[in-house]
Amino acid sequence: MKKKDKQQEIEAIMRSLDGAGRASAGDFFFTRLQTRLQQKSSSAWERATGWIARPAVAITGLLLILLLNSIIVVRQVEKLADGTDQASLQAFAEEYRLEVPTFYDNTDKTE
């Protein structure tokens, strides 16, 4: 292509949008927009419940709750076991006077 022709072609390209009409959006633009708006405007609560109801979230949450419960139960059982042993031993010793007499116990009695 000659230089002059090339320049003319470039100018023709630069003018190629002159008189171009407006492109028109699809026929169901408003209907689709309404659907999008409904999706977006779903309340925060609906979104939160929707998120919680997702299987991965629900199962993880359930497992976490079970794990926490198990830890609490195990700790309580350990604590109770320790406590009852001590108390029952003391009660048994008192009942059958099995306490070890000390030096001070004897002096109290003689005076």
Binding site: A12, M14, S16, L17, A23
Partner: peptide
């Protein structure tokens, strides 16, 4: 290809 461009200018407009 912009739908509003005149038919004669379609190819040039694509280059633009």
């Amino acid at each position: 290809h912009h739908p509003g461009v005149l038919l004669d200018n379609k190819e040039r407009a694509a280059v633009l």
